[in-house]
Design a binder for these strands. Sequence first.
RNA 1: GCGGGUGUGGUGAAAUUGGUAGACACGCUGGAUUUAGGAUCCAGUGCCGCGAGGCGUGUGGGUUCGAGUCCCUCCACCCGCACCA
Length: 935
Amino acid sequence: MEYDFQAIEERWKAQWKTDNAYRVEEDPNRPKYYVLDMFPYPSGAGLHVGHPLGYIASDVFARYKRHQGFNVLHPMGYDSFGLPAEQYAIQTGQHPAITTETNIKRYREQLEQMGFCYDWTREVRTSDPKYYRWTQWIFSQLFESWYDVQADKARPIRQLIEALDSNGLDGVHLASDSKWWENLAPKIRAPWGDDFGGQLSADQWRNCSDSTKSQILMEFRLAYLADSEVNWCPALGTVLANDEVKDGLSERGGHPVHRKRMRQWIMRISAYAKRLLDDLDGLDWTDSIKEAQRNWIGQSQGAEVRFNVAETNHQLAVFTTRPDTLYGVSFMVLAPEHPLVPEITIPGHKDTVEQYQQAASLKSERERQGAGDQTVTGCATGASAIHPLTGKKIPIWIADYVLAGYGTGAIMAVPAGDERDWKFAKTFDLQIPGIFEGKDTNTAVFTEKSAILCNSESLNGLTGSEGIPAAIEMLETKGVGSKQINYRLRDAVFSRQRYWGEPFPICYENEIPRLIESTQVTLPEVDAYLPTEEGEPPLARARKEDWNVFEGDRMEFNTMPGWAGSSWYFLRYMDPLNEEVFCSREKSDYWGPVDLYIGGAEHTTGHLLYSRFWTKFLFDIESIGFHEPFKQMINQGMILGRSSFVYRVLGTNQFVTAERRKEFKTQRLHVDISFVEGDTLDTEAFRNWREEYSDAEFILGKDGTYTCGFEVEKMSKSKFNVQTPDELVERYGADTLRCYEMFLGPLTQHKPWDTQGISGVHNFLRKTYRLFAQSDDGSPSDTSLRILHKTIKKVTDDLNRHAFNTVISALMIGVNELLDSKGHQRNILQPLAILLSPVAPHLAEELWQMSEGKGSVMDATWPESDEKWLIADRITYPVSFNGKVRFQLDLDATMEAKDVEKAALQHEKTTAQIEGKTIRKVIVVPGRIINIVVG
RNA sequence: GCGGGUGUGGUGAAAUUGGUAGACACGCUGGAUUUAGGAUCCAGUGCCGCGAGGCGUGUGGGUUCGAGUCCCUCCACCCGCACCA
């Protein structure tokens, strides 16, 4: 009887479907376990062999947990809004919903064929109105919330209004721009006076019109509308988030990105910076991702110092991490975009300053932060600041090495202790006051905190590290500065000028935004998926009657970004059909949070940060009871393609085999891997591949075949090295593919795909089938029981540490040894079938039946290894001399160290080894090793 | 520049607490069997050497009876971040 994988897999897939075998419901009597795969975008190309790697691993783990008695939630769905479907729509006019539907169908087929245990009744799609209704709801909650810094949580805007009505902003600490009032129109803040510093009184608030109040509140909402510098990508016709821009180019498509000032919806993620940073410590994620998030959040501790601008009322605040070097400040530098630049520049410098500003604004993001381009540029404003401690006048410059978006957009320059300041001072011949004992900072900068300070009055004699707290204290006493913590993390732009995304539940009245709460806003039909002639987003094409709801003067034309829907999808899986709430508290209390999250490492600063942010927000408003979404995460490595090459002799149609290619001048060409079997080219297939190769001639090797060269690179269509799971499933079955992908190597590592190895794994399954075909109900030998229990232990331990590759090896060893020991008795085979079931579910179900197991193998209890069978009665000791193994010694396991030593020393080979030398020491590690030190 | 990661046979890799380096597979070599199959079985396969033996986990050093594993140095490759004050 042969292993007929096709029949087996088909039969059990059908049976499981009939039995709803993957359906899960909450069950308070059983512990839950939530295994989640990263949300796929259903692309038109379908899955290649690299995609399912993580899905297989999570599926194996989900099944394993189920055997252990856990109630396992293991869902799948689609991040189905997004650019590719829309780009396709622009080109073809086909509605993105249609493309998306087709792609999802294909994905579903591929996923089902792999035998994943997803509960498909929980499938979600971000582009489904029943889903995005709740994405919109979360947005509306963010809109209706502000961040209370004192309580360190989000609170309803209603409570802020109540506070404003009774006490104004007195006693309220909220997250906002540090000078939020400057974002308001001058005529709004005019009544509050020139020296308004943010302390809005109850009277001032009450005197505002409704429209003004709404504009003021906008400064405090967690989802707010603001004019800001955004990453505008003209080629894509939309803005991009910081994490969607790499080296000044769009991540998708690689198009140039410019800075542009636009009115956009923004998420106040910066309010959560500290919590996002601090809570990383408790997560079981890789250090590299946690570290990358820490860098992205970019906390730095230091001080804010205020400088007065000479002969004006203006004040310039700067942030510094080195307040200890205050006495070394010899000039200030502002970002070219700094709002005070025009006001403080003295008449004689206006022209050059404006020219410099102009030049800086024309530079693209890429040029401005371009690697290598570290040429120092800058321009004096002619104005001076007063050093707050010494009272000395210091010049104020502008330069584009100072970023408008970080800190206050201004710095105090300490050339002695800062590389960039030092270079700047050298370039423009500015003073470099020495402040470190024994360091000549005129010739070299000194940036370490270890130097002893001098010329620094009360700080003299302190090291930098000691000087920092002392300096902060001094600044606070003198009232010219204070301790401060700064974050690099900026608020996230939440508008996209696109069609295929969630519409905002927002309309405008006199250009004041208002939430639409009466009905859900759904995507209207439009005549084209392009911006309007006026440059408005595609939704501006919708006529009033195209919208299902139309309120106010106009609807919001932007849509939400891709990360909106994917920031909370793991919550919807817990309660996918609920029409009252995004997820009932009862269900999220049972299922949440995600216990194990498996996916690629490419979402480090995007998805993973945004999900954490929304989770914390939903926790604050008590919609869920946990504040981190993903307890443990594993990032699978990429599966690389193995490309094959042929070598064409230059100027001919002759192709030379790889081993002889050095004899000719050749051109290397990718060849489709489907014509290559173990590096040997099917020359006929190659000739038939393309017209131009039809009369190709081959210079063959000695064995009369054509050998291709190979290289490991990313899988891509253009390299003809893409392997789809479909053909492999057809040829070997899903179980083989699952086992093979796990067998390839450690999950987290990148590895090349090589189909040659798959036959070994397929053989293993065939051998397993053969073992079970002999199933009987005799009693097994001690040897067979030892093999079984050793395998149980190894497989269990390895699954627990997610070492899936060695799980397969252990099973192979087990099956090989059982075949040798004739271990085909039912009480050996049944536990073995369970061990196999996470990795090869179809075959395991068949084998379970063959060995007369009851019910489905999926629900069988995971076997436990019995210590009794793990203890060996004999031990083969390696005997080494000076650490080098010379021979083996088979001894009784119960023998004590003393006797082991004696036995070793008496051995004839020992005598030979120590000939002419003396024994200095004998080390016996019981059960392990004997080492004899001679000399 | 900073941060993270990876270096072990011809290939993918294993070695979990410092204790027989290369398990398990692929590939390769030889053989058996068979109405040639991408089947099965047996033997071999880290490198050098006929052999005894020697050498071997990126480099060089150290700790140890014993190091792929711990410490230091350097090198190569991959991935992030990068004028962040």
